[in-house]
Design a protein around this nucleic acid. Structure first.
Length: 738
DNA sequence: ATAGGGTTAG
């Protein structure tokens, strides 16, 4: 408990703080330190203290302490030393430059650029280090123009020739801001001046070329420079990984192994990242074993990358086991393990870990919140999402892009597209993910018009659309039956932007054509394009046949599809529904027989909704719910109310949900009807009801819920296996095509 | 006064 006290005394003694005022000011400042000084930077700091034997030691000079403070980014500690220097002020004039340089470095490292600049401006005499330290600050800050200006002034005004550190800093600020032309000029300069022979400069150049797409140039530098070290390799590997050139990364790794270059901590981190992106568990385990055998001390960086590797390779349990035995965990390790659960679909586990993290007193950051929000989105758990949103506001992270994006995704996937819009319009800065999330969100909600509006906003905002953008845009066009517009984007705009359409885009076109009734064209499009069409694409066409009641083509496609893929339950059900719609009961029986023979089982229909933070789950004909008799009464009541509006129970589209097809009565108690009825009973009037269903909604429920939304005067939002249906005033956003 | 970890749109 009195750790800081001892340390304060030691510091006072060693700094020769004699007056009462000095001792007091140091002790007071140290009181405010978040950690005891001895744990500040254990490795670097303790030797000073222990060897000094509480006496003034030549080792413990303020300059070294300033470096400790800077490296630990501990502003408070740095200020103590600064205060001490101001009070004692016993440095001879000619040594003042170095002292101020150290102070500039301190403030730069602690993100106090303004103070650093002030100190710099007040210097009567400066050397290269002064300039360089401040330039490093601007580089870190992402202000390359300020770096260039200082660079110029240094040469012109002070007549100082840049050294290797200066030029390396300038190069770094070029590639951080993607100013490759300037970067190449620096390359030329360093060639002429001979500075490129320095390791720092070489590394900066390699890093620059690896960061822009010019991997070849980076490798060339690697080739031409004799005697490259681990740093070079690590930089190239990271540059390659950043552009997902995994194959070439492996090549470089082989080179590294041939050379016998010893791997260090950063190398292991990078290699685990490679394993993760390859999803190669075997390789990952191998490297892990090799790391354990080697003499390196694993640190918190390696720990996180190992957890991530196991997660990305689909082995959460190994990741968890490793996480559990870690003695040092920080935000990143926690985020990594939660992300591993999320990526493998264990959303609840990810959310549960959060409370454990809080018990450990580790505050979440933007990445943590993103993982949590995505997990909430995976469950469509609006209540969790809302809580996390409040959490983000409290911690001041709501302005962050990463958090904003995750909020949009969460709200959109949880069925609250209005909330997603609100987050979107309040975002200070967006990236391509933001735009894509809000566009595809609207598409999922079948709000095609708004999706296209936002797409045009995106173009005017000069954000470049990408592969994912067009999936959202093309499906919006499909919803609106804007065939020409969709084909224009597909045939021209994408080409113009250099985006090679993939299966998803082709499938959107099938949807676009077939939805607007051009079934033959859609089929021709599929047959004439040598794409590796998958079940989803064929089922899109099949579904269109079903909705447009083209029985013959539908049957033909279904048969073809079932030949191709024996397991796709959706196709069996569509075929069965198609038979039922034209009252071909023999056909229905045949499909069922086929399913039994091939042992294809339909998942039972399940719907759920949240009422006051509790999820209520319903299955068809559910009577397990404690209030089921009231729910059934509610349904009977609703059904009698909608009959005058033209509701007639539709047996055709629902047979697949009934085990015993004679029991027509059952369709009144489909899981989504139960959930909607319960929602109407339990939520205040005016509040939208959000229901989630695991399968495609059946025709009967769709009709019934449309009319229920009218008689009950409620917005009802149902997420089925494919999309969101917004029921309002007797209509559905999907336009009865789903 | 060089390098390394965690998130995301379909």
């Amino acid at each position: 408990m009195s750790g800081w006290m001892d340390s304060a005394k030691k510091l006072c003694i060693t700094l020769k703080a004699n007056t009462e005022l000095e001792i007091q000011s140091i002790a007071m400042a140290m009181l405010k330190l978040p950690v005891p000084i001895s744990s500040l930077a254990p490795v670097k700091f303790t030797p000073f203290l222990s060897k000094s034997n509480e006496l003034a030691s030549p080792l413990l000079d303020p300059m070294k302490l300033l470096k400790v403070a800077a490296d630990a980014k501990n502003l408070k500690f740095g200020r103590v030393i600064h205060a001490h220097l101001v009070i004692t002020n016993r440095i001879p004039r000619d040594c003042r430059v170095n002292q101020i340089n150290s102070l500039i470095n301190l403030y730069v490292k602690c993100d106090e650029l303004f103070i650093a600049r002030q100190m710099f401006d007040r210097m009567s005499k400066r050397n290269v280090v002064s300039w360089c330290a401040l330039m490093a600050g601007y580089m870190q800050n992402g202000s390359p123009l300020d770096v260039f200006e200082l660079f110029k002034k240094m040469i012109v005004k002070d007549n100082i020739f840049p050294n290797e550190y200066v030029i390396a800093t300038v190069i770094s600020s070029c590639f951080d801001s993607q100013m490759y032309v300037e970067g190449k000029q620096c390359h030329g300069f360093s060639l002429k001046s001979g500075l490129e022979l320095h390791q720092y400069v070489k590394n900066a150049l390699i890093q620059m070329y690896s960061k822009c797409s010019d991997v070849r140039a980076a490798l060339k530098i690697l080739d031409t420079v004799p005697g490259y070290d681990v740093f070079c390799y690590n930089l190239v590997l990271n540059g390659l990984l950043e552009h997902s050139h995994v194959g070439e990364a492996i090549e470089v790794l082989k080179l590294m192994i041939d050379e016998g270059t010893k791997w260090n901590n950063a190398t292991f981190v990078t290699i685990f990242r490679i394993c993760a992106s390859l999803k190669d568990l075997k390789l990952g385990k191998h490297v892990h074993a090799r790391m354990l055998k080697s003499d390196i001390d694993d640190d918190v960086y390696i720990g996180s990358s190992i957890i991530d590797m196991y997660g990305k390779c689909g082995n959460v349990l190994s990741g968890r086991a490793f996480f559990d035995q870690l003695q040092n965990r920080n935000v990143v390790s926690w985020t990594a393990i939660m992300a591993a659960y999320f990526q493998n679909g264990f959303f609840e586990e990810a959310l549960n870990l959060f409370s454990k993290m809080e018990i450990d007193h580790i505050p979440p950051n933007e990445y943590t919140l993103a993982v949590l929000l995505n997990s909430a989105a995976g469950l469509s758990a609006l209540s969790h999402g809302d809580q996390l949103h409040a959490r983000a506001e409290k911690s001041g992270l709501k302005g962050n892009v990463i958090v904003g994006n995750a909020l949009i995704i969460m709200y959109s996937k949880s069925g609250d597209i209005l909330a997603a819009q609100l987050v979107f319009s309040n975002m200070k800065c967006c990236d391509s993910i933001t735009w894509n999330a809000i566009i595809t969100g609207h598409s999922h909600h079948c709000i095609g018009k708004e999706a296209l509006n936002i797409f045009h906003d995106m173009l005017t905002a000069r954000e470049c659309p990408n592969y994912v953008t067009f999936i959202g845009v093309l499906s919006a066009c499909a919803h609106l039956s804007l065939v020409d517009e969709g084909l224009y984007y597909f045939n021209h705009l994408m080409k113009q932007l250099g985006i090679v359409p993939g299966l998803e885009h082709y499938t959107c076109i099938v949807g676009l054509l077939s939805r607007s009734g051009r079934l033959d064209e859609a089929e021709n499009f599929m047959r004439s394009n040598p794409i590796n069409w998958d079940v989803v694409a064929w089922r899109t066409l099949l579904n269109a046949c079903y909705v447009h009641r083209n029985y013959d083509k539908g049957k033909q496609i279904a048969e073809y599809l079932l030949q191709m893929d024996h397991e796709d339950v959706g196709s069996y059900i569509l075929l069965s529904n198609m038979h039922a719609r034209v009252r071909r009961w023999d056909g229905v029986v045949k499909v069922r027989k086929l399913m039994r023979e091939r042992n294809v089982k339909k998942e039972p229909g399940v719907s759920w909704l949240e009422i006051r933070n509790i999820a209520h789950v319903f299955t068809s004909e559910d009577n397990k719910h404690p209030e089921s008799s009231q729910i059934y009464e509610m349904i009977r009541d609703l059904l009698t109310k909608i009959r005058p509006l033209g509701y007639v129970p539709d047996i055709a589209g629902v047979l697949h949900d009934i085990e015993d097809e004679q029991k027509i009565d059952n369709l009144s108690y489909h899981s989504e009807k139960l959930a909607v009825a319960y929602g109407l009973m339990k939520s205040p009037s005016g509040a939208p009801i959000r229901v989630i269903k695991n399968l495609r909604m059946c025709d009967d429920c769709h009709t019934a819920i449309k009319l229920i939304s009218k008689v009950a005067n409620r917005t009802i939002i149902v997420r089925d296996a494919n999309r969101f249906h917004h029921f309002q005033d007797g209509f559905c956003s999907c336009g009865d095509y789903w």
